[in-house]
Each structure stands twice: as C-alpha cells, then as structure tokens.
C-alpha cells in the first residue's frame, strides 16, 4: 500500500510495468534567500524563494541521468522551513515535504515530486501562522504513510495527522496541547521514533514541562508523558529511546 500510494504520487501505478522509471530525488536545497516575509519564526527574517531539486531521471538504468530542477515560488509565497525533507520508501520512491507559506494566508505543508507540487494541506488562513513538521511514517501500520505536524506551535499547539492517499492528503485527526517549537528557535524539537513498539511522535507538552509520546491507531491519537523536559539533551534522549 505504501508503494501504491507513492507510485500514485509519482504518476505510476503499483504492479504496472512502465518504460519510464520514477524520478528518484537525490538532494533538495533551498536557494534564493528572501526577506519578503517578515515573520522570523525560525530566528531570522530570511526565508527562501526557491528550491533546487537534484534527481536521477533514470534510476535503475545502466547509466543514471542526473538532473537539476529549480522550483521557484511566486512573490506571494516563501519556503518557511529549516530544509526540504526527502521522504523515501523501501522501494526508493521519493517525495519532498516542506513548509510553504503564503504571505497573507500563512503556512501549509506541501509535498513535491521531482517534477512538481503534488499536493498540499490548505493554508492555515492567516498571515504569520506557521506549522512545524514532526515527520512522515506509517504511523498506524496499515502500509499507508501519514504525515504529522504541529499547527500553530506557539498558539493552539495542535498535532495534526494527514494520510497520503492516491488523490492527495486526507486529514485524519488532531490533538491539542502538544508542541515542538518555540518562537525564534532555529530547530524543531522531537520527531518520530520507533523503540520497538511502533512509531511514536515525540513532542513537548504545551507548557514545555514534559516530553510526550503520542501514538496513532488509525483513528485517534493517544498521548502519554515519558519524561521531564530539560532542554534539547532530554529531547534527544527521548528520540534515542533512552526513556
């Protein structure tokens, strides 16, 4: 199912022989720094106007065809993120997950293939409203990947789960009272870990007192305290399953 979803995302169909192998994304980096959005949520007022994607247009062929593509946003939008995240499945199918912000409508989570914007969540709806990615994984073990992020991590602090499906992203559920970013930090805390009992999303609680582990069972989220938040070392310890 994971393969089906990702194949669908890159325009192919699982189990269908094709003369055109999917593009495999090798590298993605932000370029063209810009000050056209005055948010500075990540510590400075520099966001990014474009992204360079390097991909193999013939992965699996005898000779790779390495190509670059620049995806440039219009003046009304910026990439407002630390870096583009390449999501890769076990079959080496790849997409890019990135936070993209409209100057008047705030942030959304966007998914790009090597060629194009594939899908995105809706913009939050208001300027200076952001979201912080937690990660992408098959959170409930059904074979279909989900993506997780904290919407408005400094305000409503709401963990949201979306599922990759063949026609895009489908919102599944959310849980308030969790966060993974403080204003001005140039990093995002926590992420997704698997300590042997399935994936868990690691965040702080709303007051940054506790480290929380949240699981998704396919329908709803359940969260539990796993330790006291004592700065980034404690968060890294949680991510490496030390508690």
């Amino acid at each position: 199912m994971l393969r089906a979803a990702l194949f669908a995302m890159v325009g192919l169909f699982a189990g269908t022989a094709s003369a055109t192998p999917p593009n495999v994304i090798l590298k993605a980096e932000f370029i063209e720094p810009t000050g056209r959005y005055d948010h500075a949520i990540l510590g400075d007022d520099v966001e990014w106007g474009a992204m360079r994607v390097t991909f193999d247009a013939c992965a699996g062929c005898q000779d790779s065809i390495i190509m670059d593509r620049v995806i440039r946003l219009p003046e009304t939008r910026v990439f407002e993120d630390l870096e583009p995240r390449i999501i890769r499945d076990e079959h080496n199918l790849t997409v890019i997950m990135v936070v993209e912000t409209h100057l008047e409508l705030g942030a959304r989570l966007a998914i790009y293939t090597a060629d194009r914007l594939y899908t995105a969540t809706p913009f939050i709806g208001r300027s200076h409203r952001w979201l912080a990615p937690v990660g992408a994984a098959d959170l409930d073990g059904d074979g279909i990947p989900e993506i997780a992020y904290v919407e408005k991590p400094h305000l409503s602090k709401e963990l949201k789960i979306w599922r990759f499906e063949e026609d895009g992203l489908t919102f599944v559920t959310s849980l308030a009272g969790l966060t993974n970013h403080r204003i001005g930090e140039d990093f995002i805390s926590g992420g997704i870990r698997d300590c042997g009992d399935g994936p868990e999303m690691i965040t702080a609680d709303a007051g940054w007192q506790n480290i929380m582990a949240t699981k998704f069972d396919g329908k709803r989220l359940t969260t539990r305290r796993i330790g006291t938040f004592k700065g980034q070392p404690s968060m890294k310890s949680a991510m490496s399953c030390k508690f």
């Binding site: 219009p74 194009r116 914007l117």
Partner: peptide, 11 residues
Amino acid sequence: ADCGGACACST
C-alpha cells in the same frame, strides 16, 4: 512560468 512548470505558481 516562474516555478518552471512545477504547478507551484500560477504564472
């Protein structure tokens, strides 16, 4: 075609 044909703009 500012975005290079990536369906990421409307130009």
